[in-house]
Design a binder for these strands. Sequence first.
DNA 1: CAAAGCATGTAAGCAGTTACATGATTGT
DNA 2: ACAATCATGTAACTGCTTACATGCTTTG
Lengths: 189, 189
Amino acid sequence: MSIRYAILGFLSWKPFTGYELKKLFADALSFHWSGNSNQVYGALIELHKAGAVGVEVLQQEKLPARKVYTITEAGRAELRAWLLSEPELPSIRSMARVQLAWADCLSDAELGGLLSSYEGQLEAQAIMCREAARRGPLRPARSPREELIWNCVEEANLAFYEGELRWVRELGSRLATLGGAGGEGSGGS
Amino acid sequence: MSIRYAILGFLSWKPFTGYELKKLFADALSFHWSGNSNQVYGALIELHKAGAVGVEVLQQEKLPARKVYTITEAGRAELRAWLLSEPELPSIRSMARVQLAWADCLSDAELGGLLSSYEGQLEAQAIMCREAARRGPLRPARSPREELIWNCVEEANLAFYEGELRWVRELGSRLATLGGAGGEGSGGS
DNA sequence: CAAAGCATGTAAGCAGTTACATGATTGT
DNA sequence: ACAATCATGTAACTGCTTACATGCTTTG
């Protein structure tokens, strides 16, 4: 469960309940986790069993109990050890690119439709990123360094979508010059 | 099993055995599949049950039988339908960014180490992409259009790693100016 | 003689997803 | 009245990964 370190990260900032963490994940677009209960609550239970976090159960009158999780020294050590370990390369899987790779059985118009559909998705996503950045800071800023890093991570996330957007537009115009000049693709249905 | 469309794509090019497809996936870096037997052979069996591919079993004297898979009309139709469906946004999960986001408990030197380790990984990956592109064409080029698209997809893949590389270097120098000027992060272990 | 390639497949497991179950409270 | 928020958790599933099992052949 690789989300465990992300959870430890949040808890190294301050204590949270599962519910809060869930929302944090759902809102932190640059982290790309859906924030589903199964994973968050499950990971918290495991982290607790492993002694990486402690729980304080606050009974409430009418609502279910709040379980506030706090990172332990062992948890801090585990997080630190992970931070010092070799980073993995990001894993990207772009079905859109796979679609494009095999799109030669589409007509020029259909291929154009695929491109602009992808473009639309990317635009929407870029807007969401900007919006999230503007609404901003549900994030730690314990030092100027940390603030800088979070800004950069957010920027990198946005930059990815913007880069992809530039790419798909470039591809569109390159295809246009191809079609306009010489042969007619491999034709339609 | 989302790899099924990628398999149908390859088979829309020409017939292949499971073993060949496996290698194709392992070599096609821009597709980002490990090319493990489990998935490929399993998907082929399912595609066959669904009538999307046909098999011809060629007995060999001393080696195991070669099962050559061919796409059917139904398979072509399924592929086409997928190509015309809404593309999904690419899913990226970058553990390195998560590490950076929580790296404030590291010293400046440790953080620098993390950055350059990531940088090294990215450089290596970029080299592999360039190398694969140079060795090149284990790919269809049924039309100038298809060739253009495959080139662009390959370029986009490389561009991602190069962009990430630029980003991590930029982050490094921004952190340097921070540290050089004012306060000393939040200090080490 | 060991390693890599050919060629098929299975087993076990990890990380993630959606959707569901419960139930009170607050907002529109 | 209906929906959203608070708060916990479970069930079922998908897609992917590594490692293993078998066994013969070619290359170093």
